[in-house]
């Protein structure tokens, strides 16, 4: 597959189950190395990096939003959002300040001391979005990020993504829902691991 994604893109990757869209997202997010070929992110040839270097890339350049939210239930939401900054080596006070600021931005100002289990699905996904944004990553990757939410909440989340894109974020997300795909500026359709159609 030959794919170039420009900075500040807002792209949806769509396709049926097993089409390879999540695998592509994992390669883009440096969770997997491509089995062949080259993947360059911000000019860095990611394919040649070792596991620790890939961790560094994931930490500084990528923000993930998952379908199952993947927050740590033992921590409150501020601590959850702080985590990537902690691995970045940022001091506690700054971490907290940045986490709170970003949580305020996603509308969770009043829920700072809550744990994920004490929030609604939409709120939890907002926390996940805050965690993805807190490091100012080059790309935000979403994997079926509205898959576990009802339609109204899904619309809320997608509108937030649109707002983030308008503010300059590069967003690539995988979805099997055409409704959700419509929010993107570009859509690539995949089948059997191949890119078949692009929409703009």
């Amino acid at each position: 597959m030959d794919l170039k994604i420009k900075s500040k893109s807002f792209m949806a990757i769509m396709g049926q189950s097993g089409s390879g869209k999540t695998t592509l997202l994992h390669v883009l997010g440096c969770l997997h190395k491509p089995s062949s070929g080259v993947y360059k992110l911000d000019g860095i040839n990611v394919s040649s990096l070792n596991d620790n270097q890939l961790s560094g890339i994931r930490n500084s350049k990528i923000g993930f939003i998952f379908q199952k939210f993947n927050l740590l239930n033992g921590y409150n939401i501020v601590k959850n959002v702080e985590l990537p900054l902690q691995y970045m080596g940022i001091e506690k006070a700054e971490r907290k300040e940045r986490a709170i600021k970003i949580l305020e931005k996603v509308g969770l100002k009043d829920r700072l001391k809550h744990k994920p289990s004490e929030l609604s699905g939409g709120q939890v996904q907002r926390v996940a979005i805050a965690r993805a944004l807190v490091t100012n990553p080059a790309i935000i990757l979403g994997d079926e990020m509205t898959g576990n939410l009802d339609s109204a909440t899904s619309i809320e989340i997608m509108e937030l993504m649109v707002q983030l894109h308008d503010e300059g974020s590069t967003i690539i997300y995988v979805t099997h829902s055409e409704e959700m795909g419509k929010y993107a500026n570009e859509i690539i359709w995949m089948s059997d691991g191949k890119r078949i159609i692009d929409h703009k």
Partner: peptide
Amino acid sequence: KREIGVRLSIGATQKD
């Protein structure tokens, strides 16, 4: 495992 996966995905190294 999921917690470990989350930590690895947000930037934890194997050493961490």
